[in-house]
């Protein structure tokens, strides 16, 4: 009789895990559904904010070609990226060669589709001189229309 009572007490002390697992799985599914996996080409940078006319698209166009201008870690220089292809000015003997390489890459990336959407993402603390090389490369790559990335609201 004593053993029976011990066994009974032991079975009563078990946790009912089913409800907890349900909640945990729901949380995982929730995070998997709401998170937008960052595309490799979306480099982390502080784009301009507080632009009231910036249009926030409902869905991110995965086919858009993104040209980024990113400051280096020490903020002394910049590097450019066309999708995930990176272009470091220090690797080029002249700016003309850098421009040529960038515009060629832009032409290759945009030639796959007519009216290709092109996004220009540049850090807000960069100077126009640093960004205009990307504008020149886009222009040389045959791009007429570009979308400038900016936040609609103040991010501070």
């Amino acid at each position: 009789m004593k053993i029976n009572s011990i066994l009974k007490t032991h079975s009563d002390s078990q946790f009912n895990m089913t409800a907890m697992i349900d909640v945990v799985f729901l949380l995982i599914i929730f995070f998997m559904l709401i998170c937008q996996f960052i595309v490799q080409e979306n480099f982390t940078l502080a784009i301009p904010d507080d632009c009231v006319n910036a249009v926030v698209p409902d869905n991110q166009d995965q086919n858009a070609v993104t040209v980024s201008v990113i400051p280096t870690e020490n903020n002394e220089d910049v590097f450019y990226a066309v999708r995930s292809s990176q272009f470091l000015p220090k690797n080029y003997d002249s700016q003309t060669l850098l421009l040529e390489d960038m515009s060629n890459e832009i032409s290759v990336q945009t030639s796959r589709k007519e009216n290709q959407l092109v996004h220009l993402r540049a850090d807000k603390d960069l100077t126009y001189k640093q960004v205009q090389l990307a504008l020149q490369a886009l222009s040389a790559g045959g791009i007429q229309k570009v979308q400038l990335a900016a936040f609609k609201n103040d991010q501070e």
């Binding site: 995070f31 998170c35 784009i47 632009c51 910036a54 249009v55 926030v56 222009s139 229309k145 400038l148």
Partner: peptide, 20 residues
């Protein structure tokens, strides 16, 4: 997922034309 999730606002875009 909690640690790697990067919560940030959705980016907007301003349409612009490049000089031709």
């Amino acid at each position: 997922f909690l640690l790697t999730a990067n919560f940030r606002s959705k980016e907007g875009f301003l349409p612009a034309e490049l000089p031709q």
